[in-house]
Design a protein around this nucleic acid. Structure first.
Lengths: 146, 146
DNA sequence: TCGAACCATCACATCTATGTGAGGGTCAAA
DNA sequence: TTTGACCCTCACATAGATGTGATGGTTCGA
């Protein structure tokens, strides 16, 4: 497929797809006319890249870990230089730490939202209504037990 | 404590501490001479901010979720505007997605590293040798993809 | 009293991931 | 042949997190 289709299927601008290529995250074949030509599996690959970027990893690290993610990976073993392995171990730790931090905070936010949902404004009669008069917020309805 | 000590205890530059304040993530008391004065609990607070930043959350979102993280939080319920709750729910989803993505990739990297560690070049000598011939090649070229 | 070590604000620089637009090819359909 | 929808490269712009330096005030010990 060409860059426009990949862009649509991944929700990623053409500009960024070219940028990822420039950063060495993806490599595109070229049609005789110079157009980039992408394999189907690039859809998943790009989505994965976007997820990692969104999670805070820089392209230079993503570039390092991407080769670990291909399934038949044994062929890469001889490629692994000691520095690269050290980088990977370090990034592994950082990812674990990120996950821990995110999980902790996500749980806290979830707990907060649960508590807010269980909070009945009728019980706090004099509660001010700062944003508007709508008494029923669209999504925040009773999830907790009544 | 003053900004220098907080900087040392959190491993965060003074510049960034002022930046976080500018972004509304922290609020410092001021001594009569104008110096910022921080409570002890700011150490944890700043570390938490750094963790969230590292995990890819922008300051504007961190600012929103930080109030959810204080333990005696009931007083915030009436403060929660519907838009803020919607933002939080959305961010909750994004955090969950980030965690999922990070976990998946971390596991893949860990699996890769385990495999590399278990990989004994001596065994590869007798085994089908995919690319290189010597036990310690500089860089073997990955042959067939797929 | 002096100098070192803090602190303040302000402004400019940098890096990374992105947007946007200019100037120009390719190609298929009207 | 023209038009419109693609594609190319190149270059400049922006936003967020961060570094660095200028300029000057405060504190404290020698």
């Amino acid at each position: 497929m060409r860059i426009g289709e990949l862009s649509e299927r991944t929700g990623t601008s053409r500009r960024l797809l070219r940028y990822y290529e420039e950063q060495g995250l993806i490599v595109a074949d070229r049609a005789p006319n110079g157009y980039r030509d992408y394999d189907d599996r690039y859809v998943d690959r790009v989505v994965q890249i976007r997820g990692l970027l969104d999670a805070g990893l820089p392209t230079r690290i993503i570039k390092q870990i991407l080769p670990c993610l291909d399934k038949p990976r044994a062929i890469y073993f001889p490629d692994a230089t000691p520095e690269m392995l050290a980088t990977l171990e370090h990034e592994l730790d950082r990812m674990t730490e990120r996950i821990r931090c995110l999980s902790r905070n996500r749980d806290a936010v979830a707990e907060y939202l649960d508590a807010v949902r269980a909070y009945d404004p009728a019980e706090a009669e004099a509660a001010p209504d700062p944003a508007g008069a709508t008494p029923a917020p669209d999504r925040a309805t009773a999830v907790a037990d009544g």
